[in-house]
Amino acid sequence: MKKIWLKGDYRVIDRIRENDRTVLGELYIRYERMVERFIIKWGGQKEDAQDALQEAVITLWQKVCSNEFELKSQIGTYILGVAKNKWRSQRRVSNRFDRDADFEKHESAELNPMELYIEEESHHEVTDALKKISEQCRRLLLMFYFEGRSMHDIAALLNLSSPDVAKARKYQCKKELQKIMDYKLEGERF
């Protein structure tokens, strides 16, 4: 039996599953003051709180879409927990950078500035390619690789006849994206 005090939260989960994206802003507004108060209390800035809350909302969305989220407590508690962790890890990274200005010493893949730069470049490459493929393909790839939705859900949301059709469509979209990226790469070579 659904707990009464989580009734509103269950509705939020359902809306995320139904791909109702207006819930994103509502969640942010609802928990903005709570997260801000927490982060500012522990020495953070308002901007840190905004970033952390955005990350937390996105994480909730991904977890719900990939069926990894189970509503055990209120969504507010979950969001605050995620925002807190995101802000702490971000602060750890920035502190580490502040302590040692010599970037050469950061050899891990995660913190290597050069690798970060290359990664960012490749990200922009994909982002540009995504803008060039069809709307359905773009949505399908985002739903599968970013949101972690199942083929069953994608088929339902994109009005595809079956999960197999969705899977086939995903293959085609990936190829299309790859093709655009390769074409662009070749164009740059010549």
Partner: peptide, 10 residues
């Protein structure tokens, strides 16, 4: 690279 890019874009 593609998956990472899609996630970043998402």
């Amino acid at each position: 690279k593609i998956i990472s890019g899609i996630r970043f874009a998402g």
